[in-house]
Simulated assay, not measured.
Amino acid sequence: MKVMIQHNSMVPIYEQLVNQIKSLILEGSLQENASLPSVRVLAKEIKASALTVKKAYDLLEQEGFIATVHGKGSFVLAVNRHAKRENLLYSTQAELEQVIKKARQAGISITELADLVAVILEEE
Protein backbone atom coordinates (compact mmCIF):
# COMPACT_ATOMS: atom_id res chain seq x y z
CA MET A 1 0.00 0.00 0.00
CA LYS A 2 1.46 3.30 -1.10
CA VAL A 3 0.57 6.39 0.93
CA MET A 4 2.34 9.74 0.83
CA ILE A 5 2.33 11.78 4.04
CA GLN A 6 3.18 15.45 4.07
CA HIS A 7 4.60 16.08 7.52
CA ASN A 8 4.60 19.84 7.01
CA SER A 9 0.92 19.94 6.00
CA MET A 10 -1.74 21.63 8.10
CA VAL A 11 -3.84 18.46 7.66
CA PRO A 12 -3.15 16.05 10.54
CA ILE A 13 -1.28 12.87 9.61
CA TYR A 14 -4.12 10.60 10.73
CA GLU A 15 -6.52 12.52 8.49
CA GLN A 16 -4.14 12.26 5.52
CA LEU A 17 -3.98 8.50 6.12
CA VAL A 18 -7.75 8.14 6.35
CA ASN A 19 -8.31 10.12 3.16
CA GLN A 20 -5.68 8.24 1.17
CA ILE A 21 -6.77 4.79 2.33
CA LYS A 22 -10.41 5.65 1.56
CA SER A 23 -9.38 6.74 -1.93
CA LEU A 24 -7.39 3.53 -2.49
CA ILE A 25 -10.41 1.48 -1.44
CA LEU A 26 -12.91 3.43 -3.53
CA GLU A 27 -10.77 3.39 -6.66
CA GLY A 28 -10.25 -0.35 -6.28
CA SER A 29 -6.52 -0.33 -5.58
CA LEU A 30 -7.32 -1.97 -2.24
CA GLN A 31 -9.74 -4.83 -2.84
CA GLU A 32 -12.20 -6.39 -0.41
CA ASN A 33 -10.42 -8.62 2.16
CA ALA A 34 -7.01 -7.11 1.38
CA SER A 35 -4.93 -6.85 4.52
CA LEU A 36 -3.54 -3.49 5.58
CA PRO A 37 -0.06 -3.13 7.03
CA SER A 38 0.09 -3.52 10.79
CA VAL A 39 -0.09 -0.32 12.83
CA ARG A 40 3.59 -0.59 13.76
CA VAL A 41 4.77 -1.36 10.23
CA LEU A 42 2.83 1.54 8.69
CA ALA A 43 3.91 3.91 11.47
CA LYS A 44 7.55 3.07 10.78
CA GLU A 45 7.02 3.38 7.02
CA ILE A 46 5.49 6.87 7.21
CA LYS A 47 7.65 7.99 10.15
CA ALA A 48 4.73 8.66 12.46
CA SER A 49 3.51 7.50 15.84
CA ALA A 50 1.76 4.14 16.11
CA LEU A 51 -1.02 5.99 17.96
CA THR A 52 -1.53 8.19 14.89
CA VAL A 53 -1.91 5.16 12.62
CA LYS A 54 -4.18 3.47 15.18
CA LYS A 55 -6.40 6.57 15.22
CA ALA A 56 -6.65 6.48 11.41
CA TYR A 57 -7.49 2.75 11.43
CA ASP A 58 -10.11 3.30 14.16
CA LEU A 59 -11.78 6.04 12.09
CA LEU A 60 -11.73 3.87 8.97
CA GLU A 61 -13.33 1.08 10.97
CA GLN A 62 -16.02 3.41 12.36
CA GLU A 63 -16.84 4.53 8.82
CA GLY A 64 -17.13 0.95 7.59
CA PHE A 65 -14.10 0.85 5.31
CA ILE A 66 -12.05 -1.70 7.27
CA ALA A 67 -12.42 -4.28 10.02
CA THR A 68 -9.77 -5.17 12.57
CA VAL A 69 -9.47 -8.70 13.91
CA HIS A 70 -7.45 -8.88 17.11
CA GLY A 71 -4.24 -10.79 16.49
CA LYS A 72 -4.80 -11.02 12.74
CA GLY A 73 -4.78 -7.43 11.48
CA SER A 74 -6.96 -4.99 9.61
CA PHE A 75 -8.78 -5.88 6.41
CA VAL A 76 -10.68 -3.98 3.72
CA LEU A 77 -14.46 -4.45 3.86
CA ALA A 78 -16.83 -4.56 0.92
CA VAL A 79 -18.02 -1.04 0.29
CA ASN A 80 -21.19 0.39 -1.11
CA ARG A 81 -19.32 2.53 -3.62
CA HIS A 82 -22.29 4.82 -4.27
CA ALA A 83 -22.81 5.66 -0.59
CA LYS A 84 -19.10 6.06 0.05
CA ARG A 85 -18.74 8.25 -3.03
CA GLU A 86 -21.53 10.50 -1.77
CA ASN A 87 -19.71 10.77 1.55
CA LEU A 88 -16.49 11.77 -0.22
CA LEU A 89 -18.37 14.22 -2.42
CA TYR A 90 -19.82 15.88 0.68
CA SER A 91 -16.40 16.20 2.36
CA THR A 92 -14.86 17.51 -0.88
CA GLN A 93 -17.55 20.18 -1.06
CA ALA A 94 -16.78 21.25 2.52
CA GLU A 95 -13.07 21.48 1.71
CA LEU A 96 -13.75 23.48 -1.45
CA GLU A 97 -15.88 25.91 0.55
CA GLN A 98 -12.87 26.50 2.81
CA VAL A 99 -10.59 27.04 -0.19
CA ILE A 100 -13.04 29.54 -1.70
CA LYS A 101 -13.25 31.38 1.61
CA LYS A 102 -9.44 31.64 1.76
CA ALA A 103 -9.30 32.78 -1.87
CA ARG A 104 -11.83 35.54 -1.18
CA GLN A 105 -9.83 36.65 1.87
CA ALA A 106 -6.73 36.81 -0.31
CA GLY A 107 -8.53 38.83 -2.97
CA ILE A 108 -8.29 36.10 -5.59
CA SER A 109 -10.93 36.49 -8.29
CA ILE A 110 -13.22 33.70 -9.43
CA THR A 111 -11.43 33.67 -12.79
CA GLU A 112 -8.02 33.35 -11.12
CA LEU A 113 -9.29 30.56 -8.89
CA ALA A 114 -10.83 28.70 -11.84
CA ASP A 115 -7.56 29.08 -13.77
CA LEU A 116 -5.62 27.71 -10.80
CA VAL A 117 -7.93 24.71 -10.51
CA ALA A 118 -7.57 24.06 -14.27
CA VAL A 119 -3.77 24.15 -14.00
CA ILE A 120 -3.78 21.73 -11.06
CA LEU A 121 -6.12 19.34 -12.88
CA GLU A 122 -3.92 19.41 -15.97
CA GLU A 123 -0.86 18.47 -13.86
CA GLU A 124 -2.55 15.28 -12.73
Score class of each variant (00 low, 15 high):
119 V>H: 05
15 E>I: 10
112 E>I: 04
119 V>C: 00
17 L>G: 04
87 N>M: 12
72 K>N: 10
107 G>W: 13
53 V>S: 07
59 L>F: 02
32 E>D: 12
102 K>Q: 15
34 A>Y: 07
82 H>P: 00
29 S>L: 10
60 L>T: 03
33 N>S: 08
37 P>W: 02
123 E>C: 05
84 K>C: 13
102 K>F: 10
95 E>S: 14
7 H>Y: 01
96 L>P: 00
6 Q>A: 09
13 I>H: 03
78 A>R: 10
92 T>C: 08
68 T>W: 00
107 G>V: 10
38 S>V: 00
21 I>T: 10
85 R>N: 11
79 V>I: 03
25 I>F: 10
88 L>N: 06
25 I>N: 04
50 A>M: 02
9 S>I: 03
12 P>W: 09
42 L>E: 09
39 V>W: 03
84 K>W: 02
112 E>V: 03
96 L>R: 02
21 I>S: 05
35 S>A: 13
103 A>H: 03
94 A>G: 05
27 E>F: 05
55 K>P: 01
88 L>Y: 01
58 D>W: 01
83 A>W: 06
76 V>S: 02
121 L>I: 02
43 A>E: 05
45 E>A: 11
108 I>E: 03
76 V>N: 01
94 A>Y: 05
88 L>S: 14
106 A>D: 07
36 L>I: 02
25 I>Y: 06
64 G>P: 10
89 L>Q: 11
108 I>D: 03
90 Y>R: 15
59 L>C: 01
12 P>Q: 12
13 I>K: 03
41 V>H: 11
12 P>F: 08
68 T>E: 09
102 K>E: 14
95 E>W: 09
81 R>P: 01
6 Q>W: 10
81 R>Y: 12
62 Q>D: 12
33 N>F: 04
121 L>E: 07
54 K>D: 05
48 A>V: 09
69 V>I: 15
57 Y>G: 02
94 A>L: 14
115 D>Y: 08
113 L>V: 07
36 L>G: 01
90 Y>C: 07
45 E>T: 10
101 K>M: 05
18 V>G: 01
3 V>H: 13
41 V>C: 03
10 M>A: 12
92 T>R: 08
93 Q>Y: 15
10 M>Y: 09
124 E>C: 07
8 N>P: 00
91 S>D: 09
22 K>H: 05
2 K>Q: 14
118 A>K: 14
124 E>T: 09
40 R>G: 13
96 L>V: 04
88 L>C: 12
32 E>R: 13
111 T>I: 15
103 A>G: 07
4 M>V: 14
52 T>H: 03
102 K>N: 09
68 T>V: 02
84 K>Y: 06
13 I>E: 04
52 T>D: 04
89 L>D: 06
77 L>P: 03
70 H>S: 15
29 S>M: 08
5 I>D: 00
77 L>G: 06
93 Q>L: 15
99 V>D: 06
98 Q>W: 01
67 A>D: 02
62 Q>A: 09
113 L>Q: 10
24 L>I: 00
17 L>S: 08
61 E>M: 13
59 L>S: 05
114 A>H: 12
24 L>R: 06
13 I>L: 09
59 L>Q: 12
20 Q>W: 00
122 E>R: 13
58 D>Y: 04
123 E>L: 11
63 E>M: 04
35 S>I: 06
5 I>V: 12
73 G>T: 01
4 M>G: 06
120 I>W: 05
48 A>Y: 00
39 V>T: 13
122 E>C: 02
69 V>W: 03
55 K>I: 09
96 L>W: 07
23 S>F: 12
